[in-house]
Design a protein around this nucleic acid. Sequence first.
DNA 1: TGTTTAATTAACTAAATGGTATATTAATAA
DNA 2: TTATTAATATACCATTTAGTTAATTAAACA
Lengths: 91, 91
Amino acid sequence: MLARLAQGDATVKELAEPFDVSMPAISKHLRVLEDAGLIERSRNAQFRPCRLNPEPLKSIANWTDRYRHIWDVRFNALDKIIGETRKLENE
Amino acid sequence: MLARLAQGDATVKELAEPFDVSMPAISKHLRVLEDAGLIERSRNAQFRPCRLNPEPLKSIANWTDRYRHIWDVRFNALDKIIGETRKLENE
DNA sequence: TGTTTAATTAACTAAATGGTATATTAATAA
DNA sequence: TTATTAATATACCATTTAGTTAATTAAACA
């Protein structure tokens, strides 16, 4: 759904289309996304178009980035070990 | 817990310490993390030390990054509008 | 005005989540 | 050998999640 919204605003029905679930299920899901601040909704006749608000995803990105760093450190350490093992082999 | 493991391996009890919940609850939680591939466990006497595996977090980081991009594009568009409004004001 | 379309609300249900207390396993230490 | 420590298994419970169907609201359309 977020992927779809990334390409532009959409109505509830459009968002529901790829999923084999009832409309109320989608409605509920969108409510959760709205409460999480991930989408914003407006009104246009009988439609309630949704717009993506990617801002909260930023905090997730920031959080995961901390671990990305750890991952890099580990790899560097591993590289070092491999490097030193190679050196020993060549002696 | 992941934050704690980011600073080095830990036993179940050490991970449980900051939380006011029973050991089995922690055990269950760790099982979930293990199933998700976020931690790996070994064995040392009666201890079962946990080690962080930050790799799966990388896919999350990659996923969120796509939306970070959208966010930037929007901001650029907004900047452009603001810039053009300023230009009009100055005319 | 009556019907169709988009969406939500209400009431309900099955399954998942997150916790508990108690019992059990396995290793250490006295 | 018995007691202690670390951890897990088991059985149970309350709450949340994710869906359903049926009814309702609100706007557009014929």
